[in-house]
Design a protein around this nucleic acid. Structure first.
Lengths: 402, 402
DNA sequence: CCCACTTTTTTAGATGACTTTATAAAGCGC
DNA sequence: GCGCTTTATAAAGTCATCTAAAAAAGTGGG
């Protein structure tokens, strides 16, 4: 029943200011004041605190403009680090990012298989220690660990949910176990949400008020940010793009995106043409086959291109619905599938969305590839913890009349 | 570039508390403190201010529980009023609501036709004065006027947008003109958003974290509330339900909701069967024909029922997408179309949404008819101004871990 | 070189919405 | 009447913010 803290005056602005310094590069106190709406005096004290904590430092003077020259501020890149862990079906990706959200270390390791939970956690924590040791990063400087997994997750309890291909991780209170084993704050979320936040921290969304990152691995997901804040519905399982209706088959049965758009669906469609499968020598798991199809398409193969374009059109339909419902002004594509076949999807989605988007007369939608395709979710996991520890924001900024 | 005020500590909690007293009926200071997370001491002073402003009053004691008995508080129903104006194609609906959001006066008047803007505004303002006079309400007690219109609107500039059947109102700075003519605050928004807020104030959404109201007049729209706060995307034109893909026709062309689900589409579909049109003696404008079909369906007519159920299924598909993307836990149906054919739509939408909703394993979705079908948008318009003047909230409440 | 001028940054004091701690009020059971 | 419990208010302190004023650090003219 209780609606949580109202907590209006909880040092949000320190985090916000750090956020702005990070995104807007070297910037003066005066510009920060203008940007936030705070007064110069307040900005002075906020900046002082950030300086004292060592999170930012002064970086020379701006060009003279007739009066006292401005002092530029920038984040102290190596003042803090965060670890991101992306749990996948067959592999686990670890990244370490610095305060700018830049990757300073990455590792892809095989999944831990079906060993029992305690051992899995121990191995995972061990791995993190080793990576930090290898990078020579003092663990005192690590603000926390972000862990993300595909599909529906239980953010509140910090554990994997869905019926995905990840039985090993289910019903394990991941977040709490890792937090206990490391003594560090751990945040847990789904991969698409993390990727969206990663793109935001990476600067790919600058200026956007309503942004979505479409994340495609083997499955399909999306994360939505409003004014840089993660949009969460009733249970943090928002933007379930895979379940959006995108058309109907010949018999009139409705088709949802995950039936026809994700890599699994593309490979399934290919298999209905055994001669082509043989010609292209498709083999291996779904993702290997999808990769082969994408390469064939790049070489000009018409069959492969046809399949991918069909997938892209269906995905574009789902994304158009997403854009219309959330009134988006920015979209990025991220994840392994787009790392392989991003250009074709980008072209199709960009043109269809901007042609059919309802509010296009008022504002366009920027559609782009994520700056960090392959590791977007892991990087996002790390930025998730950076944000929650250093720049918490549970609410948006501007109101309707803005 | 400026991101608007950060304004964290702006007396939001006074409005929040008023909101809670209104929704949770007679309630004690202690319970309010628990509900908001504020301390009892703070609640005492906040409540004192509301008492001093005459917005609430004490209403007896709660039942004894071993210690000092609690004093129950409730809103002073007739302490303030708000006016709601719904601009429609052919008519204008005016309502006056009290502090509880209950309607104390309503009037439906013909539209002002194609007269020039100045005269339109004068007539509208005159009408408002007359209604208040008729109700014997002191204009000093009116907190403001809410004005809503269908379709896309320019909330920022307070004017009608789209190419709807409302040429007369276009390119007129409605909000500012009415504000100037009355000296009262005027808020402007689209009808679906208003209806959602009206349902929230009417208590139809109690307990919901993510709620949507589907509004169907001649066209189709929806408004979304997150923790009681209106969700606005990049330009306040969110939840464009009419443009959601709901299937495909025989030739594979995608169908969007407004092609097949709204009353106009139902009537269009009926016209393809001239014999049935003749049998049912359909005539008049689209809405009259839709009404006739709904009545025929109630009598058990199979043709009419078939058309309405087809419409309902398509709408249910769009609503399912909406629910999946926003992770809704509450939906209401409002507007003239549902006032006439609500039960059939409710049945179809409730069953389909709850069968196909992705997160159904974690939480259900309550689907209901709005408590104030016909006038939901007008009532919502009035509550919009009540909220913005008395309980401003530009941001949500709780965070992810709640 | 020094002085007026501009612009940025810091300091000092005030405000308002909170908090914690302590106290007063109001009923119940004995 | 007296302790006990619970509710309501009062007093004093904290914190993020504001306004007003002062200090700092350049430029350009003399």
């Amino acid at each position: 029943m209780a609606r949580g803290r109202v907590s209006l005056s909880t040092g949000t602005s320190k985090g916000l200011v750090l956020d702005l310094i990070r995104t807007l590069g070297p910037i003066s106190r005066t510009d920060l004041a203008a940007e936030t709406g705070l007064t110069a005096a307040t900005m002075s004290t906020v900046v002082r605190q950030l300086l004292d904590e060592g999170l930012i430092h002064e970086a020379g003077l701006g060009r003279p403009n007739g009066g006292r020259p401005v002092v530029l501020l920038e984040v102290d890149t190596s003042a803090r680090y965060a670890v991101g862990v992306q749990l996948g079906g067959e592999s686990i990706t670890y990244v370490v990012v610095n305060l700018r959200g830049a990757v300073v270390g990455r590792l892809r390791a095989p999944g831990v298989g079906a060993s029992e939970p305690g051992a899995m956690i121990t191995a995972l924590v061990e791995q993190i220690h080793l990576i930090l040791l290898g990078l020579g990063i003092d663990e005192q400087l690590v603000v926390g660990i972000g862990v993300v997994a595909p599909g529906p997750v239980d953010v509140a309890r910090g554990m994997v949910f869905g019926p995905a291909h990840m039985e090993a991780w289910q019903n394990v209170p991941l977040r709490d176990l890792i937090a206990e084993a490391t003594g560090l704050p751990v945040v847990f979320d789904n991969d698409a949400t993390a990727a969206a936040l990663g793109d935001f921290w990476g600067g790919a969304t600058e200026g956007a008020r309503a942004h979505a990152t479409v994340y495609m691995g083997l499955g399909l997901g999306a994360g939505v940010l409003i004014d840089g804040t993660v949009f969460r519905g009733a249970s943090s399982n928002t933007a379930e793009l895979g379940h959006i209706t995108v058309g109907a088959d010949a018999s009139g049965r409705r088709l949802i995106a995950e039936d026809v758009a994700d890599p699994t669906a593309v490979v399934r469609a290919a298999r209905e043409h055994p001669d082509e499968v043989a010609r292209l020598a498709l083999s291996g798991d779904d993702f290997a086959q999808f990769t082969a199809l994408a390469k064939a398409s790049t070489r000009g193969d018409e069959f492969a291109t046809g399949l991918l374009e069909a997938s892209a059109r269906h995905l574009a339909t789902a994304v158009t619905s997403l854009a219309n419902l959330f009134d988006l002004d920015s979209i990025t594509l991220a994840g392994p599938a787009f790392a392989i076949a991003g250009s074709i999807y980008l072209r199709v989605i960009d043109s269809q969305v901007n042609a059919e988007f309802f509010a296009r007369s008022r504002h366009g939608i920027r559609v782009r590839l994520s700056p960090q395709m392959q590791d977007a979710a892991a990087v996002g996991a790390a930025t998730l913890v950076l944000q929650s520890e250093l720049a918490p924001r549970t609410m948006g900024l501007a109101g309707p009349s803005d």
